[in-house]
Simulated assay, not measured.
Amino acid sequence: MSSDDGILETRLVRVRGQVQGIGYREACVRRARASAVTGWVRNRMDGSVEVMLQGSPEQLDDMCVWLDEGMSAALVEELEVTEVPPPFTRFDAFERLPTL
Rank of each mutant, 00 (worst) to 15 (best):
T82P: 00
M1D: 12
G17V: 02
R42I: 09
V13K: 02
G17R: 01
G6D: 15
S35Q: 10
G47N: 13
G39N: 10
G70K: 02
P98R: 09
G23W: 04
V37L: 04
R11P: 00
S3L: 15
R90Y: 06
E83V: 11
P57R: 03
R31S: 05
V37Y: 06
V51L: 08
L12I: 04
G23Q: 10
R14T: 15
L100I: 03
D61Y: 03
A27S: 15
G39V: 12
R42P: 09
V29N: 03
P98H: 04
V65H: 09
L75T: 10
E69V: 08
E58M: 07
P87L: 05
G47W: 06
D4E: 14
M52Y: 01
L79R: 08
R25T: 12
D4H: 08
W66I: 05
M63V: 08
A27F: 03
L97S: 05
A34N: 12
V29I: 14
S48K: 01
L12W: 04
A36V: 07
R44Y: 02
V51Y: 05
T89R: 15
F91L: 09
L75A: 11
F91A: 14
R30N: 12
L97I: 01
T89H: 11
G17T: 02
F88P: 08
G47Q: 13
P86D: 10
E78F: 00
S35N: 04
W40P: 11
F88T: 01
C28I: 14
V84G: 02
E50N: 06
T99P: 06
G21R: 12
M71H: 12
P98Y: 03
P86C: 00
R96T: 07
R14C: 06
I22Y: 03
S35F: 01
V29P: 09
L60M: 01
S35Y: 01
R14N: 14
L60S: 01
T38V: 13
R30L: 12
P86M: 01
L8Y: 00
P87I: 06
G23I: 05
E9P: 02
G47S: 07
M52C: 13
M71D: 07
P98V: 05
D62Y: 02
L100C: 01
E69S: 10
D92L: 11
R96Q: 15
G21P: 10
G47R: 04
E9K: 13
W40T: 14
R16I: 00
L100E: 09
R31K: 15
F88Y: 08
V41N: 10
E83R: 09
P57G: 02
E50G: 03
D5G: 05
L12N: 14
R96I: 12
M71N: 08
L97Q: 11
R42Y: 09
N43W: 11
S35L: 13
R16C: 09
P86W: 00
V81W: 00
V19T: 04
P86A: 15
E80Q: 10
V76L: 05
G55R: 02
E69G: 01
E58Q: 14
Q54M: 04
P85I: 07
M1R: 08
F88R: 02
